[in-house]
Amino acid sequence: PQECLLLEPGLNEIMANSLDYNERLWAWESWRSEVGKQLRPLYEEYVVLKNEMARANHYEDYGDYWRGDYEVNGVDGYDYSRGQLIEDVEHTFEEIKPLYEHLHAYVRAKLMNAYPSYISPIGCLPAHLLGDMWGRFWTNLYSLTVPFGQKPNIDVTDAMVDQAWDAQRIFKEAEKFFVSVGLPNMTQGFWENSMLTDPGNVQKAVCHPTAWDLGKGDFRILMCTKVTMDDFLTAHHEMGHIQYDMAYAAQPFLLRNGANEGFHEAVGEIMSLSAATPKHLKSIGLLSPDFQEDNETEINFLLKQALTIVGTLPFTYMLEKWRWMVFKGEIPKDQWMKKWWEMKREIVGVVEPVPHDETYCDPASLFHVSNDYSFIRYYTRTLYQFQFQEALCQAAKHEGPLHKCDISNSTEAGQKLFNMLRLGKSEPWTLALENVVGAKNMNVRPLLNYFEPLFTWLKDQNKNSFVGWSTDWSPYADQSIKVRISLKSALGDKAYEWNDNEMYLFRSSVAY
């Protein structure tokens, strides 16, 4: 590609939709070469300064400071330590791993069909083939991996386009969902002041979706909304933040926050679980009234959910574990990228498509890292959202599997949720969690119950496949010279610098 592309739109479109291996590689590498390399010296300084700040406030390091958001002291029976968070994340991840490994094996087999000769049947997945710029969410792999393609499509993007949905309609439908469970409408100022579409040439905007509580009843969302099912669900997520903000607005200023950061992320995700169900999509006209649910549509639905929800958990866990180790000084600065990709291979089963030396800073190419967000919130929120969903479905008197529950129109479920939201940070999160779900610790069981039918199906699908991955295989081993030459021509001086062995191999191949 010759034109100058922004991340959004532009590069993200390539990473969402392109099936051209080399075009995807160009976009993936260009973003890291342009952005990651510029941020490397800044990120090194950032780590030093943030650690100084944390230690001045009596924390061991900046990662310890972040984990302090979960700490509860002096509340008998509800205490929770920063170290306990690490333990809980690690042991819940071990419980999730078998499901993830089977999802990984299934996706690898489907990617082998889409990119023959580029995928190893026992290796890691190349990082640039996973549906977005970071491989964070695998949602866009659904069209390549759908188990029963002859069934009606449960990705309702086409239906939204056919019905001329726009950003306003998407957010109005999200608002209807919250109102149906007894939560309030958005304010008039929300509709007047939010930026729900890309302003285009009028001004440059950071398009990463964010929710804003500017105080004095001024709530806004910034999002360059596209007419897709993914953005339909994202709208519910962002509006969930606003509902939380509005619910605790009466609290004293210092207590106007989520019980912990994971709670804030979980609220909209609960609504997304219901909004994505075929039952709900039928009720708002995005699935045909004669759409029939059966075992095959159930597996299609659960796989689509797993690509988004299960596929991202190792990504989140590994990223934050790397940062915690960096802040603690356990990874020397001259080994940041080496350790990043070692951990990516070992924990996530994902491999870099071309080698990256220590001039890169791949983590900082992600919005949340370069903008100083702690990231473990996206792991804890996933466990909380299924715990909350299970409890709210019980309040809504849902009968049947958890993945079929739609809590819309249940004011009982809405009241149970609101009673927790309005507390803000005035009560320990362990107590707030217990008030809703009857337990005071994160628990992976509801998530595993939700995906149980899919897990059973995946194990059957993978019975003749290798489950797990070898960390030795690299996608650039066989194609390295071709890849390096093409990237050198595209990126010039910003391309990865060849070492002596690679230059010798190149000259030998040319001479041959």
Rank of each mutant, 00 (worst) to 15 (best):
Q188G: 04
V206H: 08
R377E: 05
G215A: 01
M246Q: 11
A249M: 01
D372M: 02
G217K: 15
F375E: 08
F301G: 07
G217L: 15
G215D: 11
G215R: 01
G189I: 15
F219Y: 11
R136Y: 02
F253Q: 13
N257A: 03
Q305S: 07
T234F: 08
F253N: 11
N153S: 06
T210Q: 09
E192H: 10
F301W: 03
T139G: 04
E265Y: 02
F219P: 14
N257W: 07
R256N: 04
H208A: 03
Q251N: 10
G217M: 15
E269M: 06
S374M: 03
H368A: 06
D230Q: 03
S374K: 03
F219A: 14
R220M: 13
W212I: 12
I309S: 06
P209S: 07
D218S: 15
R381M: 06
F253W: 13
R220D: 04
N193L: 00
R220P: 03
A249I: 01
R256M: 01
W212A: 13
H264A: 06
I309N: 06
D245Y: 06
F137C: 07
F301K: 02
D245C: 04
G215Y: 01
Q251I: 12
F301L: 09
I309A: 03
Y373I: 05
H237Y: 10
N140C: 02
E265L: 06
T234A: 09
F375R: 03
F137V: 06
Q305K: 08
R377L: 08
Q305L: 01
F301I: 09
Y373E: 05
E265D: 08
Y378F: 08
H208R: 08
L233A: 09
T308Q: 01
D230H: 02
Q251H: 12
V206I: 09
F301C: 06
Q305P: 02
Y378R: 05
N140V: 04
E265T: 04
F253C: 13
D213G: 09
F253E: 14
R220E: 03
T308F: 03
E265M: 07
R136W: 07
E192C: 08
F375N: 04
F375K: 04
H237D: 03
D213H: 13
F219H: 10
T210W: 08
T187I: 07
Y378S: 07
R381Y: 05
M246S: 11
A249E: 11
P209G: 08
D230M: 08
Y373C: 09
M229R: 08
W212R: 13
W212D: 14
D372K: 00
R256T: 06
G189Q: 11
I309V: 06
F219K: 15
F301V: 04
N153D: 09
D245F: 04
F253M: 11
D245N: 11
T210P: 13
T187G: 10
K216D: 15
T139L: 04
R220K: 14
H208F: 00
K216H: 15
D218C: 15
E261Y: 07
K216M: 14
R220A: 14
W212Q: 13
R377D: 01
M229N: 01
Y378I: 02
Q305A: 04
F253Y: 13
S272M: 07
H264F: 07
K304P: 02
Y378P: 02
D245S: 02
F219T: 13
N153P: 06
E192R: 10
D213M: 11
I309T: 07
D213S: 09
F137A: 08
T210H: 09
Q251F: 14
N140L: 02
H241R: 05
N140F: 04
F219W: 12
G189S: 14
Y373P: 03
M246R: 10
K304F: 04
R381H: 06
D245H: 09
K304Q: 03
M229K: 11
E265S: 03
T210V: 10
E192G: 10
G189E: 14
P209V: 10
K216R: 14
S374G: 05
A249W: 15
M229V: 08
E261V: 10
Y378E: 08
L214P: 09
F137W: 04
S272Y: 04
N153G: 05
L214C: 02
R136V: 05
S374L: 09
E269Q: 06
V206S: 08
L214R: 14
R256S: 08
D245L: 12
Q305T: 03
T210S: 08
E265R: 06
N257H: 02
L214V: 11
N153C: 07
T210R: 07
R220Q: 13
Q251R: 11
T210Y: 08
R381W: 08
Y373F: 07
H208T: 02
Y373S: 10
E192S: 10
F301N: 01
E192L: 08
H237E: 02
P209C: 07
D213R: 12
T308N: 03
R377F: 05
G217I: 14
H264G: 05
I309E: 03
R381C: 01
K304W: 07
H237G: 05
I309K: 03
S272L: 08
D213E: 09
H241M: 04
A249Q: 13
W212K: 12
H264R: 08
F253K: 11
R381Q: 02
P209W: 12
E192M: 09
H237R: 07
W212S: 13
H368L: 07
H241I: 09
R256D: 10
M229W: 08
R377N: 07
D372Q: 02
Q305F: 02
A250F: 05
P209D: 09
E261C: 05
D245I: 00
A249V: 11
V206N: 05
K216G: 15
G215N: 02
G189R: 15
Q251K: 12
L233D: 11
F219M: 14
T139A: 07
T234V: 03
F137M: 06
D245E: 10
Y373D: 09
N153M: 06
V206F: 07
D230P: 04
R256I: 06
Y378M: 09
R381S: 06
D372P: 02
S272N: 03
L214H: 02
F137R: 04
N140S: 05
K304D: 09
F301P: 02
T187Y: 07
A249L: 00
G217P: 15
R220V: 13
S374W: 04
